[in-house]
Amino acid sequence: MTGLVLLQVLFLNRISLFGYVTPLFYLWFIVRFDSSMSRYSMLLWGFVTGLLIDVFTATPGLNATSSTLAAMIQPSVVKLFLAKERREVIIPGRNTMGTGPLAGYLFLMALVHHSAYFLLRSIPLEDWLVITAKIVLSTLLTFIAMLAVALSVEKSNQRRPA
């Protein structure tokens, strides 16, 4: 998590394409929660991650709110995209979900998280066009980044001898 937080605050927050698009890649930490984790620890980890980012970006509560929300919905969204009820412990990824559902899962997580983030950030909500653009474009960017990393991570896992 430390690495992700540092990556986010030291590099990614500097990115501001066309003044709209900021990738919030730290969400990766939350989408990879495995199903053995208790809801409590998921929520607390989500909260702590967000708060840490807030500390660095001087936006008290902004990331904490959105990442706690992401941590809350994570198990339900995983379930939504799983073909059937699974008993074993799973980490959301291509091997456990398949590429299509994985993409859907990552996209929905990014959309919910980024919507919360940019809506809260843009209060008072005046310029809807700009807010929508920010949400959509940033969601796409984070989604693509997460999908690319997810696919490459699993590839390298498969190559490793069991």
Partner: peptide
């Protein structure tokens, strides 16, 4: 866990708007 969720979100929103 819903209560924990509500608690954490309240805390965050206080940070966001209450300060």
């Amino acid at each position: 866990h819903v209560f924990l969720f509500i608690f954490l979100e309240t805390l965050s929103l206080i940070l966001l708007f209450g300060l």
